[in-house]
Amino acid sequence: MTLTADAKGVYVISVTPFTDSGEIDFDSLDRVVDFYFDKGADGLTILGMMGEAPKLTQAESRAVADRVIRRAGGKPVVVGVSAPGLAAIGELGRAVMDMGAAGCMVTTPGSLKTDPQIHGYFAQVARTLGDDVPIVLQDFPLSTGVHISDEVLGRIIDEVPQVVMLKHEDWPGLAKITRLRAAEAEGRRRISVLCGNGGVFLPEEIARGADGAMTGFGFPEMLADVVRLAAAGDMDRAQDIFDAYLPLVRYEQQPGAGLAVRKYVLAKRGAIGSAALRAPGAGLAREAIAEVERLLARQEKRLKELN
């Protein structure tokens, strides 16, 4: 199944499980793939920033991709292939597409400084990967430092047909979704828009015209429920459910600590065997664990009240 501009729903950004000694835990990788789909994911995205992709070797990246794609059993898996050079992007991208990936996610390297450089980069990526490889453009200026204007994004959509999806992580960025959909209403080619940033603006993003979420959270069922309800027009119920999880979503937004929180919750729920991050990266301090546990208790209480 290859990605198209009509993709909708929730493509969970998967963690990469490690043992306490730092080796990839392939048994936990199987388990967390099953967990995400059991909790309502429509697809997965692997080897993203929250999947600790920069800490993997090229061989490990291929092994993880192969294992997840096989475990997904035909459900769509997008693979992050971002790298400093185009050769590495092409090598990993072609390899995972041969394995059965649905598409490749690519973000902007921080070296891009001008609008022509940004536009030219994605044209180069498309030529490197090939005409038949769907591309997810990850727009994440908070991490990359590269800001993609509406005009440049429009040129990429117009001139690089392999770009079928925007992973929208601009912040503030709700107006960008509105302007993108308005341009499509005037005749521009439609692309799918799935949103990241930990889902912190998810109800508003769906209301603005996003097709779903491409992010991670220790409770992926929240992402699935909010997207489903908001898409059906039941915004009040979607907001009520989102609000019940919002304190934990907010806690996850701490730079440098968010992934440790997510892995702690996933391990607590039995989705992975260990909450370990690969070095460099540390787990949660005792005080942070106590804070997360308090948030989880309050979340459970609120969800019971919402029935």
Rank of each mutant, 00 (worst) to 15 (best):
160 V>L: 10
161 P>K: 03
161 P>V: 00
163 V>K: 07
165 M>L: 15
166 L>H: 12
166 L>D: 06
167 K>W: 09
168 H>E: 14
169 E>M: 09
169 E>H: 00
171 W>D: 12
172 P>L: 02
172 P>H: 00
172 P>K: 14
174 L>M: 10
174 L>A: 03
177 I>G: 04
179 R>G: 02
180 L>K: 04
180 L>E: 01
181 R>V: 02
181 R>Q: 06
181 R>E: 07
182 A>N: 10
182 A>Y: 00
183 A>G: 02
184 E>G: 04
184 E>H: 12
184 E>W: 12
186 E>H: 00
186 E>T: 09
187 G>M: 01
188 R>V: 05
188 R>W: 00
188 R>G: 03
189 R>F: 00
190 R>K: 15
191 I>Q: 02
191 I>P: 02
191 I>F: 07
192 S>Q: 01
194 L>C: 03
194 L>K: 08
196 G>A: 07
196 G>M: 03
197 N>V: 13
198 G>A: 01
198 G>I: 01
199 G>C: 03
199 G>S: 03
200 V>M: 12
201 F>H: 14
204 E>V: 00
204 E>R: 03
205 E>Q: 15
206 I>H: 01
206 I>R: 07
206 I>Y: 03
207 A>V: 03
207 A>R: 11
212 G>T: 07
212 G>E: 11
213 A>V: 03
213 A>E: 05
215 T>A: 11
215 T>P: 12
217 F>S: 08
217 F>N: 11
217 F>V: 11
219 F>M: 09
219 F>P: 14
220 P>Q: 06
220 P>K: 00
222 M>I: 08
224 A>K: 07
225 D>R: 15
228 R>F: 00
228 R>H: 03
228 R>A: 11
228 R>S: 02
230 A>H: 05
234 D>A: 14
235 M>N: 10
236 D>N: 13
237 R>N: 13
237 R>D: 08
238 A>F: 08
238 A>L: 10
239 Q>A: 05
239 Q>K: 15
239 Q>C: 09
240 D>E: 06
241 I>A: 04
245 Y>H: 13
245 Y>L: 11
246 L>V: 04
247 P>K: 07
247 P>R: 06
249 V>K: 13
251 Y>I: 05
252 E>L: 12
252 E>M: 14
253 Q>M: 14
254 Q>Y: 02
255 P>R: 01
255 P>M: 01
258 G>N: 11
258 G>S: 08
258 G>Q: 08
259 L>F: 08
259 L>I: 13
259 L>Q: 06
259 L>D: 07
260 A>P: 13
261 V>H: 15
264 Y>E: 03
265 V>D: 02
265 V>Y: 04
265 V>P: 13
267 A>G: 10
267 A>N: 00
268 K>A: 10
270 G>W: 08
270 G>Y: 04
272 I>Y: 05
273 G>D: 13
274 S>R: 15
275 A>W: 12
275 A>N: 07
277 L>T: 11
277 L>Y: 13
278 R>Q: 14
280 P>Y: 01
282 A>Y: 13
282 A>M: 15
283 G>W: 06
284 L>P: 06
284 L>N: 09
285 A>P: 01
285 A>W: 05
287 E>W: 10
287 E>F: 05
289 I>C: 07
289 I>A: 03
289 I>Y: 06
291 E>Y: 03
